[in-house]
Amino acid sequence: MLEYLLSFLILTGAVFTFIGSLGLARLKDFYTRLHGPTKATTLGVGSLLIASALLFSTRGDGVSLHEVLVTLFLFITAPVSAHLLAKAALHLELPSLAPAPQEETHDRQAGNSRGPGPHKGA
């Protein structure tokens, strides 16, 4: 029973990691590419780490929960780096499939070429 659960978690993790990177390689513009890896990999690595915690907890030498720490850390940092990458891409005005946002032109008129402009993020 445990073996099936572990196998399921490991396979899910590997498949999601693979699909995330497939999105990175396959999609057409930067903004859509951003969605693949930052998301699918968090769930992928998350379930791999849960599998690892389960495996080491059931081997007999006590509960092993420190994998939770890596999961927690990834879940906190992944959105921050995704947000920063999206902000950097908007700042560099990378071409996108979606129509560009309105505020961008507004910002440019405000004379924001480089340096600390009105981009104050969270």
Binding site: A14, P37, T42, L74, L85, L92
Partner: peptide, 29 residues
Amino acid sequence: PSLPDRILALDTLYVNTIALLVLLGIHLA
């Protein structure tokens, strides 16, 4: 084609390396 693309690829590379290491840990117990 652009710098953010490369940074995104590097970031994903880190995460996938974590996945590889965890798998190796499971494999070698």
